[in-house]
Design a binder for these strands. Structure first.
Lengths: 339, 339
DNA sequence: CATCGGTACAAAATCGTTTTTGATGCTCAC
DNA sequence: GTGAGCATCAAAAACGATTTTGTACCGATG
């Protein structure tokens, strides 16, 4: 059933029916009522495609899952998507999801999504310094919002978990347990939040007067393998660390695996702290002490910010820094004894 | 840059440019080349909305995440989505995702997606006997494919993991270890595969001549809580089971948690077998013996089937039953001793 | 030489809405 | 009693592509 048939059925013009349905005020209340009843009766549902063509809106927002881990399997993106979908419920907006293979592919997909006007705006995560995605979208004037800030000139909408706090508080806590050599297995250095984590880590070392520590920092991937590799690198040092801060939970889990393979007892021999509080964190052995990042809530709020930008709001002021919160479990040695 | 501008730039009509780009044969090869070069130069990208309106295709497929656990956080759906997205890469089709709150909401969302022609077809999972979603879509003539079969009259495209095998093989294995009282904490009874699992479970009991077992079967949810609750129910029996088969891995993990809280040692006191082989299964303590269901591959294939149906293929013959495969870890007691 | 068939392009219709502009009749004021 | 103002609806344009139909030209064919 299309608009024309419905109008014919009612003995009205398509314009009147359309305006009745869309709540314009130049249609008599009685007529509007008739229209709504007929629409209900015939199960009329406006063609989204036609409406979007005419009104030049896609009524959809796109989310790009980024390499390398990309995939839906990445628990971070899961939470983010859930939050975004929550925010979109009740709006006419749809959620369009696509996973990029590599960085080139990612830009290509953005171009396609925006060029073909498939989406009104985009959300993506894991921002970098001089992020090419941000540059592209700002140049095109496309609305977007990101999980993580960047250093772009122009303001844009973002939410960021303060990873400086993660780095800093983790060091303070571990130092409080007596550790002097605290390793950091960080996420890839090009990521903005990786940089922040390192900053916090450094600051705490400075403030607490801990010894030099450049050799105690390694970075690489986002996955278990990165954790395993980091452990091998750090334990090869002449004076290896007695505690490890990991850039995310998967790294931490990989690190704990490897420590155990090498005959060390997590928490007792080497303390471990993660970041993100993924569901897995409570199932690892030992259960992981980690910083909770409210990613789902962030996704919800990001979608809200993006909708505002799409409505024409200036991105000025649409930035928020959120504080992570420590979840204490068993992997950080509690008030226990360092090696 | 739209088609008209491009045509003007080239001194051609819009129809010729369109036909050139779309590979029709009534365009001189040289002209086509010029068109492609100009399109490249001006960065022309056809408006997806306009094309879809004219060609009456949405170029998108929808996936409904079902209640109750719904949400993206459900590892099953993650895997499924990943597979679907993989299959869609390289096609013009997009992936539209939405999570329903409850069953009524689910039907409503289907109606909206299809009515507004936002999608050309749908994929959903966790089929039931007399599934109202199937009835609705068949009546509307909308293409769809499901994870899980049903009992609808008309054929439709589906893939199913054979849960009869799960139920049957699990019992056979556990009976082989000497267990006589084998519990089943099943997924909700209205689900089709729950029914199949029970069938296999019953058949194995019959074939092996095991004693009556109706009291040994409970069902409820899909989550950890269901597993915990199931354990409480079964251990309250006068003659409690020494082994448990769980409808999925989350149930199994919940069950193991609860068993341990009650002072029992999994594998030694009570053997546990799960189903699905979620990523979590290898991290549980003890690591879970479970049946691997290749859900991601199924997602990929489901998308392929759906695309065929959308192209006009008859759903006749587009059905597949896949075999689960046992992954042996530590929770089933191996060749150990029953209590 | 009339016609036929094929090539290469253009013109026009179309998809199903929303938006803009126009038309009608009525009331009210001056 | 005429024109302004308002209420209500209709007609027509627009969105930007694809598809259908039309046309000009050319060589071949009988």
């Amino acid at each position: 059933m299309d608009l024309r048939s419905l109008a014919r059925e009612l003995g009205l013009s398509t314009s009147t029916v359309s305006r009745a349905l869309n709540g314009y005020h130049d249609v008599k209340e009685e007529t509007r009522k008739r229209v709504f009843e007929a629409a209900e009766k015939f199960g009329y549902e406006a063609s989204a495609v036609a409406r979007r063509l005419r009104s030049r809106k896609a009524e959809a927002i796109g989310v790009i899952l980024t390499p390398p881990q990309s995939q839906f399997a990445d628990p971070f993106f899961l939470e983010l998507l859930t939050g975004i979908d929550e925010a979109l419920t009740g709006t006419p907006f749809h959620l369009l999801v696509t996973a990029a293979h590599d960085k080139k592919d990612e830009l290509e997909r953005i171009r396609r999504l925006v060029g073909g006007r498939r989406v009104d705006g985009l959300i993506f995560a894991r921002t970098e310094a001089d992020d090419p995605r941000i540059a592209l979208l700002q140049q095109q004037g496309t609305p977007f919002a990101t999980m993580g800030r960047s250093n772009a000139e122009q303001p844009f909408a973002w939410i960021d978990i303060d990873h400086r706090v993660v780095g800093e508080e983790a060091v303070r806590r571990l130092a409080g347990f007596g550790h002097r050599r605290i390793g950091l297995i960080n996420t890839p250095a090009h990521l903005m939040y990786s940089h922040h984590c390192r900053q916090g880590y450094d600051r705490a070392h400075r403030d607490l007067g801990l010894p030099a520590h450049d050799d105690l920092v390694v970075d690489g991937g986002l996955d278990r393998e990165a954790g395993r590799h980091g452990v091998d690198r750090l334990l090869a040092l002449a004076d290896p660390p007695s505690a490890l801060i990991c850039g995310n939970d998967m790294i931490a889990i990989g690190a704990m695996e490897r420590l155990q393979e090498r005959g060390l007892v997590v928490a007792k021999d080497v303390a471990v702290i993660g970041c993100d509080d993924q569901p897995l964190a409570q199932f690892s052995s030992p259960p992981l002490t980690t910083f909770a990042a409210p990613v789902r809530r962030a996704g919800r709020h990001l979608a809200e910010l993006l909708l505002q930008v799409i409505e024409g709001a200036s991105p000025q002021g649409l930035q928020e820094v959120w504080q992570p919160e420590l979840v204490v479990r068993k992997s950080d040695g509690g008030p226990g004894t360092p090696r």
